[in-house]
Nucleic acid binder design. Structure first.
Length: 537
RNA sequence: GCCCUCGUAGCUCAACGGAUAGAGUAACUGUCUUCGGAACAGUUGAUAGAGGUUCGAUUCCUCUCGGGGGCACCA
């Protein structure tokens, strides 16, 4: 394995630098010169400049170096881009977390999809990753639900009806009545518990179906109700440390810098989601000793997590050894730019969106049902992931399901195209081991490439860097950006030059190798995004 | 009222403080007797406003205007 130029420069300059194979010749003035993986410094002036003001370090990557990257991609295959840097470290990712008795709405797509991508990215970098689906299966919302079930005397435990009851409750709210039922539930009332159980079972069945369509499988599903027995421990420890106080009958912790305290117990003694989150943290720390816990939760809960994290540090549940991160993803907004509110019955059901997208993929020519599903679901996942994690997203049926342009299916299509070319290559030319090391040689025997080939090559080798950065910055959209660029450059090349009927055998073999490599990276990258890559579509 | 966040092309979005601000879409125009047209190429079009820091600002700071979210007994 060659020593990476990046590492070399890191050593030399002492801080990370951005490497570019410059697009324009005049940018090469301050360039380093790379030869056979070794780096020669063209001018000390460059080092000084970078030390002083930062900026670019341009490197003229030799054609041979570039084409060696193709072999490297092919050789490493499914592992290309992965590292072992996370070896021995555990990361817990809290994601998806739908609420019981509500259908899986478009709002939960972000957490589920982004969470899964973050999961895959960290796993790819060698971390031990634990995904935990922190189900909303406890809390006053169940008081509301049980209250309505008792009030209407309904026997209809379909999720549709439960959701309707929730909306009905908020039209004529009786908060005291709801709190009483939740208190009864927490006190172990048999009737309340039995109704709760039915609601959970119905909801879980619904969620399982959605996860199946999405192709998402989350390691653990503890859910909030699991922490019933741990919450008293948290109360005890909080009181021992003397950080609690009673305010208006509720047990709270004052958090410096915040106007309102964090409430652990309500005035009726019922638990809050804050204490459940603390209990969860205590449990996770004890069970997995993670280096980091990522909460893939929307930005609307920023205040809550800031307070919970602060109190967790007071309690010793987090701090130096456990890093807590809240991703604060943006919300889906409706056409009027407003939040989708379940309480008002204003949501878009994820299942409807998925079905519609799959239907459109089918109509466009996906014969096999599996492929239509992969393409439709892939379109939606890519749409979500390609946005910067922090920005709000306006939900638009047409844009969510885009099957062309900068979209999931574009990447899938490009992958399928590479596979199609390769299957023809192996039968027509019998080159089971395409040699990627040869381009069109010039008269002196040096390897040269045309502009389109070079454009792909100059992009190909960056995949590992992109994966790293996406993990560090918790930004799966960087992977999307990269894959789209790569696919786009490959398609440009594809449209301009023939692969299988290239002028020389060397050129043909090189282009076949390039196709293998591009296909491999698309496959690896889509895998990180949890988007399927069918060989045909 | 207070806190957080966002404001980039007609629309939807990109861009570790770095080079000529990139795409998609829409509109218009082209490419293909040849490996998959869900493709490729081209034209039109943008950093809300005013200051500041910096060699350099879409990015950092301040203010104004505008959108969104939140502000203890929902999660």
């Amino acid at each position: 394995m060659q020593k990476s130029i990046r590492d070399y420069l890191l050593e030399k300059i002492g801080k990370p630098v951005k490497l570019e194979h410059p697009e324009r010749e005049e940018w090469g003035d301050y360039a380093f010169f790379a030869k056979d993986g070794e780096v020669e410094i063209k001018s000390d002036e460059v080092i000084e400049r970078v030390e002083k003001v930062g900026g670019f370090v341009n490197i003229w990557l030799q054609n041979e170096w570039l084409s060696n990257k193709v072999s490297e991609v092919i050789k490493e295959g499914d592992k290309y881009g992965s590292t072992a840097e996370g070896s021995g470290k555990t990361v817990v990712i809290d994601y998806s977390a739908p609420n019981i008795a509500k259908r899986f709405g478009i709002g939960h797509l972000r957490s589920t999809i982004i969470g899964q991508a973050l999961y895959n990215l960290h796993q790819f970098l060698g971390y031990k990753v634990i995904g935990d689906n922190h189900l909303g299966d406890w809390g006053t919302q169940f008081g509301k639900l049980i209250y309505m079930i008792k009030k209407t005397g309904t026997e209809d435990y379909t999720i549709e009806n439960l959701e309707k009851l929730y909306v009905l409750f908020h039209q004529e709210p009786d908060d005291d009545g709801a709190r009483k039922w939740f208190k009864k539930l927490e006190d172990g009332d048999v009737e309340a518990k039995s109704i709760w159980k039915k609601c959970v079972d119905v909801s879980m069945a619904e969620f399982e179906r959605i996860y199946q369509i999405l192709g998402v499988k989350i390691d653990e599903t503890y859910g909030e109700s699991f922490y019933e027995d741990i919450m008293p421990e948290v109360i005890r420890e909080a009181k021992e440390r003397g950080i609690t106080s009673v305010s208006e009958g509720a047990l709270v912790v004052e958090v410096p810098g915040f106007k309102t305290p964090l409430m652990l117990l309500k005035s009726d003694g019922g638990t809050t989601y804050a204490i459940r989150d603390l209990a969860t943290l205590r449990f996770r720390k004890g069970k997995w000793s993670p280096k980091m816990i990522i909460y893939e939760v929307g930005a609307e809960q920023t205040l809550h997590f800031e307070q919970v994290f602060a109190v967790a540090r007071m309690l010793g549940y987090a701090g130096g050894d456990v890093k807590l991160v809240h991703t604060k993803h943006g919300l889906y907004l409706d056409a009027d730019g407003k939040k989708f509110a379940t309480r008002k019955g204003k949501t878009i059901k994820l299942e409807e969106v998925l079905e519609e997208a799959i239907g459109r993929a089918r109509k466009l020519g996906c014969e096999e049902e599996e492929t239509a599903k992969a393409v439709g679901v892939g379109a939606i996942k890519y749409f979500d992931l390609s946005h910067n994690i922090s920005s709000d997203i306006v939900f638009d049926w047409e844009k969510v399901m885009a099957l062309e342009g900068n979209s999931g299916p574009y990447l899938q299509y490009t992958f399928a195209r590479t596979q199609s070319v390769l299957s023809k290559a192996s039968t027509q030319y019998l080159t089971p081991n395409p040699s990627p090391n040869l381009g069109e040689g010039n008269q002196r025997g040096e390897v040269v490439f045309n502009d389109e080939e070079r454009s792909v090559l100059r992009y190909l080798y960056r995949f590992p860097e992109v994966v790293q950065e996406a993990a560090v910055r918790l930004a799966p959209n960087l992977v999307c950006n990269y894959l789209y660029e790569l696919a786009s450059k490959y398609n440009t090349f594809y449209n301009k030059h023939s692969i299988l009927s290239a002028g020389s055998e060397e050129a043909r073999n090189f282009r076949i190798g390039l196709t293998v490599a591009v296909g491999q990276i698309l496959k690896n990258g889509l895998g990180l995004l949890e988007i399927e890559a069918p060989g045909r579509m």
